[in-house]
Amino acid sequence: MSGVANPFRQAGAERIDPLLVALWITLIIVAVIWIAPFVFIIFTSLKSNATVMGTGAFSPPTSIAWENFANAWRRGDFGTTVVNSTIITVIKVPLGLMISAMAAYSLSRIQFWGHKVAFLAIVFGTMIPFQVMLAPIFKQVNSFGLINTYVGIILPYLAFGVPYQVFILHGFFKEVPKELSEAALIDGASHFTVFRRIFLPVSLPVLAALLILDFVATWNEFAMALVILQDPDRWTLPLGLMSFQSQFARDYGQLNAAIVMTVLPAAIVYLIFQRYFVSGLTSGAVKE
């Protein structure tokens, strides 16, 4: 996709622009720096401990120590954490998107009392980091008796996911031509029908973008899980990795295998759905 016609030339110019070549070389150097950590982690994950200590950082592993992955999987109890992360993500992400889309439709298309205030609260909510108030969130979840439960982590995840998604979808729904929904409403359709039959289908690309962004965010979340999921049987992947690091920090090969296994699912999703990430991020933030 990067097949640029006549690279290194200014638009319309025939000659190669030396400044662009210099710029390109600089970017390649920066890219090498950016990729180095990945290479280092992958190499280490495939080396035995003795090799890690005996060879240079970027010398490729000579005999590949696949057992690092099996051992890290077992000792880090990845079987449990992967299942927990999957359950939480699979429930939270679609559910959160659903309630956000409903709210965004309501805010952008229906006039009711308090709808200005609700919008203001939403935008305000996009700006307040929950990391600031982990203790009161713990207290609230605890008062429902939901510590160490899936529901107990999913509810605050939903709460803190709503503002950003509503903000983005509200911006999108506002641009949908009025005629589209008004014709249906005049014919006697309810707002529920208009939302389901017209707005959901036309906003599929935005919904897909938000779905993928939220999948990665939920999969990666650490601080809230740290506070609410204290029982190792309920830990998610990031909690498992943290605990692995504190217990087996000197088993370099296995530690790096654990990192690779934690990072891989999100990395694969990213590589497959790359273009959605950009559109999801920028559709709301940068409007021209």
């Binding site: 409903m102 309501s106 709460a159 509503v166 529920f192």
Partner: peptide, 17 residues
Amino acid sequence: QGLVLIAPAVLVYALFA
């Protein structure tokens, strides 16, 4: 209808955020 649509989001946001 507007309130019904917005209620779940508002409820969860109000309680947990």
